[in-house]
Amino acid sequence: MATYKNSCGVFVLQMMVVALLCLHAQGQGLKIGFYDKSCPHAEKIVSKVIDEVMAVAPSLSGPLLRLHFHDCFIRGCDGSILLDTPTGQTEKFAPPNLSLRGFNIIDRVKLALEKACPGVVSCADIVALVARDVTVATKGPFWEVETGRRDGKLSIITDLRNPGLPPFNANITTLKQSFALRGLNTKDLVVLSGGHTIGTSHCSSFESRLYNFTGKGDTDPTMDQNYIARLKLKCKPKDQTTLAELDPGSFKTFDDSYFKLVTKRRGLLQSDAALLDDPETRSYLVQATSHGSTFFKDFGVSMVKMGRIGVLTGSQGEIRKVCSKTN
């Protein structure tokens, strides 16, 4: 965390410290099997729907995993990413979230749960369970998801300004600060970045690395030049629509190949490449490509930690009947 000498900076630092202190108490009220009595088949229902979706649309695995991350990093894991308003001023419509997909799948899961157990399972818990189940469906690890979250009633587009989601062009200092602010450490940062083993990204998210890195029509010198040449065949300047695989060749399979790519300077986003700029994250990159890799186990642990950020439990919030609107 940076230190600041001016009064405004001191205030910002104090606010960050307060936020960190609050995070230590987060996760209270969550537990494994929260719905065992109130909706005993809840997790099976979620898993069944996701298996059906993945059978016909496996490319949604990455977006559905990202939904949990984008939800938890703003206002905590309270389902606020799902809310709509007539004015379109919710988190969903902030620039970093415009590429998110899979909201209709969350609605489909919610509808199935409402038929079985009306008004019982929160949308925030659905997002967490779906993240686990798409990981499993793409041959990734299984972990026990703590449940008991309740849904928030607010979703404000400006909440993504500061501190917002770490941008795709973030350096390692920004990434570490963003994660620390939410109670996640450097290991969590590199482990959760491994979620980029599935999914895609718009060319616009890394275009500058290919065509105008420093404003002089140059390429990013930290990226493998052969990889740049391949990407230029797919992504032309100003391309806003084309998607590129975050983990070429296995972007529908949850595995450790993302880490191999990053170590070869073929991380697609600057935030991926930044993992080479810190001794701890770089060490993990190497370890994750070895026979002694603990990535699958670590991913579940870090996902549980992330799932505790800013949760609402007990009598806080509500259980939405429809995920896109408050009751």
Results as ranks from 00 to 15, higher is better:
N104K: 07
S61R: 09
A116Y: 05
P95F: 10
L30M: 13
L67D: 09
I45V: 11
L100K: 11
R132Y: 04
K92F: 03
I81Y: 05
V53M: 04
I81A: 07
F34N: 06
S122A: 15
V49Y: 01
P96R: 08
N97F: 12
T138S: 14
H41L: 02
K31L: 06
C39V: 05
H41Y: 00
D71W: 01
I32Y: 12
T87V: 01
D51S: 15
M54N: 15
H68Q: 11
I126C: 05
A112W: 00
L82I: 01
P95Q: 08
G27A: 09
V46P: 01
P40I: 03
S80T: 01
L65D: 00
I32V: 15
D84K: 11
C22D: 09
I106V: 14
C77K: 06
L67Q: 11
L20Q: 15
V136Q: 14
G27V: 05
S61Q: 07
T135P: 03
P58F: 10
S122M: 15
K31V: 03
D51T: 15
R132N: 08
V49N: 02
K139H: 09
G88D: 04
G62R: 02
C22Y: 08
F93S: 08
V109W: 00
Q28F: 12
K139V: 03
D107R: 15
C123E: 11
V134K: 02
A128M: 12
A112S: 07
C39E: 07
L113I: 05
R108M: 08
K110E: 04
K92Y: 04
T135I: 14
A137D: 10
A128Y: 09
K44C: 11
R101E: 13
D133M: 04
V130P: 00
F34Q: 06
S80W: 00
C39Y: 03
F34P: 00
S80C: 01
D36G: 02
V127P: 00
G102F: 13
V56T: 14
E43C: 14
R66L: 07
D133T: 03
A112K: 08
L83N: 10
L82K: 00
F73A: 14
R75A: 08
S47P: 02
P118D: 03
Y35R: 04
P63W: 15
F73V: 15
D133A: 06
K110A: 08
G33M: 04
E114D: 05
Q89K: 11
G33I: 06
K115L: 08
L60S: 12
G27P: 05
H24I: 15
P40Q: 04
V46M: 05
I45T: 12
G102L: 13
P96G: 07
I32N: 13
V49D: 00
Q28G: 12
R75E: 04
C77R: 03
K37L: 07
K31S: 08
E114I: 02
A131L: 12
V49A: 02
S59C: 00
L67M: 14
A42Y: 09
T90Q: 06
G76R: 01
Q28V: 14
P95V: 08
P95W: 08
